[in-house]
Design a binder for these strands. Structure first.
Lengths: 225, 225
DNA sequence: GACATAATACCAACCAGTTGGTATGCAGGT
DNA sequence: ACCTGCATACCAACTGGTTGGTATTATGTC
């Protein structure tokens, strides 16, 4: 009496926006709260009651929406990734027609959003996978998936820029995209250790400089095929 | 009746090696166990009993040597850092007379030791500071200190190499040393997400290439002052 | 009244830390 | 040598607060 339970209402038909039930709002509150609490204290130390308190709800509501703490964490990972996607899609750099500018703009943008307290800009996925990679395979898989998807979006731009600016270079767009994610995750760790975003910004300066050398301008620019 | 307790025997006179008390051996066992367990499951999820079981001792022994779980974690951080220092000091690259070779050798060496299971090569400090930076200030401070000390050792070599190969470049040895630590920490996160060290090795290839471009050979080599 | 949502009350397992006890080693006095 | 006093090292059993999860009840909406 555990496996097949409720499929919950989190994934509704996307029905009437205002009137009916405020369930979507509560589910969203819980997810936002979970993201914030887990970013602050990690997955293991984040108690269900912490998340409920942060959301202004009780455990009754929590276990109505999620089968378990682990399921909530996985949903929170998806929620976090969706929010991130929306944020980067909306950022001005992403509408540049030049792929190289989009790559450098991405790094600049990531540097620009290093504002406020640490839980506001650090990565939920990197935080969770650190503790959960061995003991919670489902969480590891979710983090892997969303990190890889995010890297994949960046890889597209990198590949396009490489085709034009460094078509013969030995490195692959995939490894460069993953490398940038490693720099980001590591920058967050250093920011946490130092209790401030400055180190992270310095790291992103190095990353930007690296991309500038990987994608040199003005030498036999290759046009599109 | 809490603050002033034992000062323990961990720091003994360094007396007779074999006969007397086997306390040092047990303390070391507990520290090794703590490092392993925390690297596997993180600080919060690591139970004191897990550490004791791994060490083949009981909780009585644990709380004889450490005042609390947190104190053990801090001692484990110091233990880990000391072990790491010894490892890098013993590595062949560190005896090269050329500073640039030592910097590149460091990255190569870090890539070479990405062997075995994940808890065997990931960084205890980065793992702990992720969860503890906000809730356990003492742990954060310890991780900050040992990460910074390790970066400082690298910084010395980088500074020497920069003076010879890129004296006028805008970047600082300090930021480059911290950047390399960020890449490492991030590489470990990706390795955990992907359940294998390959991504991490790819990241270190990028880092090595970056250092090669930061420290170009053969252009107006500057001699020592 | 059927259904979804959410609150209250509760439980059983878990776990950091405590207690009290035993074993061992090391003085120094006789 | 032998005893005594004291500190260190360790163990087994216990405790009390915590916490994920459940059972039950209440409220609002079609």
């Amino acid at each position: 009496m555990k496996a097949v339970k409720r499929s919950a209402s989190v994934l509704r038909k996307a029905g009437k926006p205002a009137k009916a039930a405020p369930s979507q709002a509560s589910a969203r509150k819980l997810l936002d709260a979970a993201v914030h609490v887990i970013r602050s204290k990690g997955y293991s130390a984040a108690r269900v009651e912490d998340i409920c308190a942060e959301a202004g709800l009780t455990k009754g509501a929590f276990f109505h929406h999620f089968d378990s703490k682990e399921a909530c964490a996985i949903a929170a990972a998806a929620h976090f990734a969706a929010n991130a996607d929306a944020l980067f899609d909306a950022a001005p750099y992403s509408r540049s027609p030049d792929a190289r500018a989009r790559v450098l703009g991405y790094v600049e943008f990531r540097k620009a959003i290093l504002k406020g307290d640490l839980p506001q800009f650090t990565c939920l996925l990197g935080t969770m996978v650190q503790e959960a990679y061995d003991s919670h395979p489902a969480i590891r898989a979710a983090c892997d998936r969303y990190i890889s998807e995010h890297a994949g979006r960046l890889e597209t731009d990198i590949a396009e820029a490489k085709a034009r600016h460094a078509p013969d270079a030995a490195w692959t767009p995939e490894s460069a995209a993953l490398y940038s994610q490693a720099v980001l995750q590591g920058a967050f760790i250093l920011a946490k250790a130092r209790h401030g975003p400055k180190v992270a910004a310095d790291c992103l300066d190095h990353l930007k400089y690296y991309f500038e050398t990987l994608l040199p301008v003005g030498e036999a620019e290759h046009p599109g095929p």
